[in-house]
Simulated scan of single mutants.
Amino acid sequence: MSSSRSDVSFSSGTMMMNRRQMLVGGGLVVAGAGGAAALDASRTGSMADYTAAVAAERAPLGDRAGLLDLVRYAALAPSGHNVQPWRFQLDPHRIGIRPDYSRRTPAVDPDDHHLFVSLGCALENLVLAAAARGRGGAVWSDLAGSGQILLEFAPGRPESSPLFEAIPRRQSTRAEYDGHPAAVSDLKALEVAAEVRGVDVIIATARAQIESVLDLVVAGNRAQMADRAFLRELRGWLRFNPRSALASGDGLFSVLSGNPIAPTWLGRLMFDLAFRVDAENDKYARQLRSSAGIAIFVARGATRESWVQAGRACQRFALQATALGMKCAFVNQPVEVPALRGELARWAGLPDRRPDIVMRFGHGSAMPFSARRPVSAIVSGAASL
């Protein structure tokens, strides 16, 4: 699931074009197509409109929040390529979450591992938000059958928490961090937050450990970028301007990776011309070396239930990092490329298991947030509640 540059989470080969290549190459193409008019905001939309729309999606949850508000908070979870592969079913006593298989990413996630991890992230947001508004309860699932997860409400007192408060501020920040180490107390808080039944988390902060994981990230990135199906799939989820990002409400907005706004036709052309393995590997090296540490999440099984639990653990970790003023991002190449999973598992000291998630963390600057689809597009049932 590495996808976002600033909150679009999981699939790992997310685009990071070379800025100079984009501007120089783009300038040549634009000049031949009518000059600056091709970059006019009337065609691409404005970042001001984009920022306002995304801020509304992340508005604080009111004291009288209804079920639609809880779904809005749940959907602020990360997902591979920011595809948001979920559907919510509402009635007065429960909220159900189902996988939306129409939003699969089979090239990077052929067995839907990341899809169910994403459902776990959304479930954790939902549980925290429901508890904060006095609707806590029990979680039930039929993942082997229907694939559905249910949160059955139980009336009670509101139970807020720093993790709940962090939900609208969490993002997958795909940028370089400041290189400073994390405080011992913060590392302990991250470890405690990620304690979820059936999941182990390995937190590594030594430079040698980070370099070892970086070697696997680079190897995985090289393998993915040699895969034409992976590149086609990634390209299909890219959004190159505010208008496109808001119209779809999903995908990877390239501006959140530090790239300039471009018309869709130009962005696609420059992706084909400028997306190169050496530049991507150099970028990942800078990003990991600037991080305070790496967390690897390993469930004790390889089932849908296990993957959902891994999603809940990594979401709690990310929310705790946010509450502590830290940033985090997914670097999942070593779990997305099957040939590398065994080596990562041995490195983590769990050779008989399948690693689920790799996340880097540290202190850094905030980036713009990614967009979400309207709640009306992802719910069914008692939508007025």
Rank of each mutant, 00 (worst) to 15 (best):
L90E: 07
A193V: 07
P338A: 08
R133P: 06
G267T: 07
F317V: 01
K188V: 03
V375Y: 03
A107I: 08
C328E: 04
V127M: 15
L350G: 01
N241Q: 06
A144F: 01
S3I: 03
E305P: 08
C121P: 05
Q84V: 15
G293A: 06
S79L: 05
G381S: 10
S172C: 12
V335E: 13
T205W: 04
K327E: 04
L68F: 07
R87M: 14
D200C: 00
E57T: 00
S2R: 09
V30D: 15
P351C: 09
G325Q: 01
A74R: 12
G27Y: 01
Q209F: 03
N221R: 04
C314Y: 02
D356L: 13
D111K: 02
S4I: 14
A129M: 07
G45P: 12
R312W: 00
G258W: 09
V255L: 07
H113K: 09
I203R: 15
Q309G: 02
G120P: 13
G249R: 13
E191I: 05
E159H: 04
A295M: 08
I97H: 14
C328V: 00
R346N: 07
P92L: 10
P155D: 06
R346H: 02
G198V: 02
A348D: 14
A382T: 11
S46M: 04
G136Y: 06
S172Y: 00
E176N: 05
L266E: 14
V217L: 09
P355N: 14
I202H: 13
A107H: 04
Q21I: 05
P242N: 03
L340F: 11
R197C: 10
L214K: 12
Q320K: 05
N259C: 05
A313D: 02
T303K: 10
L67V: 06
L190C: 07
D250C: 10
V255M: 04
E280R: 15
A262N: 12
S161I: 01
G35Y: 05
V331K: 01
K327G: 00
